[in-house]
Amino acid sequence: MRKTRGCICLWVTAVILGLASLFLILVFTVFKPKHPVTAVNSITISHLDFSIDITNLRVHLNLSLDAVVAVENPNRVGFKYNNSTAFLRYRGNDVGEIPIPVGEIGAHATRILNLTLTLMADRLLSDSDFFSDVKTGTLRSQIFIRLPGKVRVLFVFYVVAYATCDMEINLITRRVDNQICHYKTKL
């Protein structure tokens, strides 16, 4: 009788360990968390008011950019992202920003974010390169997006997706030229 109980206990333990091993193998292979993919689909100028006052040596600039950003979740579970911010940068300085509210993207789904970045012109006036760039009619700038979040597969995995787009804003043609985007993810 004692031998039978020992065998049953041993078999039950072996089955439990086998199922636990199988479950862990599935979590770290099939359900392994993947990085969300952030892509900037387009950047356009939605509003541009630009003039130069030669008599007072002043530049008047009011600029808004529309950016369409796609965030793809390649995971088999949902991706929850935190409050974040997209920045418009000129020569490394933040000159515009827009908050990205907290959200969730389902398994194997893509969310489109429509962002409007408004240039804060007062931040440009102290930059000596700004006036020389205005003379050439081209402002070299960058859009920077950082989207931190988490994926929960048995454990919580924290991930961050980045997107940066270098571009030239042509003040004369009122277009965005030479747009080059870079994408980076971090687990």
Rank of each mutant, 00 (worst) to 15 (best):
E72M: 05
P99Y: 09
H47P: 00
I172S: 10
F79S: 00
S64Y: 04
N62I: 11
G106A: 06
T164C: 12
S21Q: 10
C7L: 13
T4D: 05
H35Y: 08
V27D: 10
N178E: 14
R146E: 14
H60Y: 15
I112Y: 04
S141C: 14
K3V: 12
R91D: 08
V59I: 15
T118A: 09
R111V: 03
C165V: 15
G106N: 04
I105W: 05
K184H: 08
L119D: 03
I43C: 02
G18W: 05
N93M: 14
P148F: 06
R175W: 01
G6F: 08
L65C: 08
K34V: 13
Y90T: 10
F131C: 03
A39C: 09
K32N: 11
Y81L: 02
L19C: 15
Y158N: 05
E168I: 05
R111Y: 02
C165H: 05
D133Y: 00
L24V: 09
L10C: 14
I169A: 10
N83W: 06
D122M: 07
K32C: 04
D129R: 13
H182D: 09
L125V: 06
R140P: 02
S132P: 00
N41L: 08
F23M: 09
T138I: 13
L88C: 11
I112G: 03
G92N: 10
L61D: 05
F87T: 03
P99D: 09
S46D: 12
E97K: 12
I105A: 14
N75M: 03
F157I: 01
L125A: 11
D53I: 10
L57G: 03
L154T: 11
Y90N: 06
L139D: 00
N178L: 11
D166Y: 11
T136V: 12
F79L: 02
N41K: 13
L24Y: 11
S51A: 11
V77N: 00
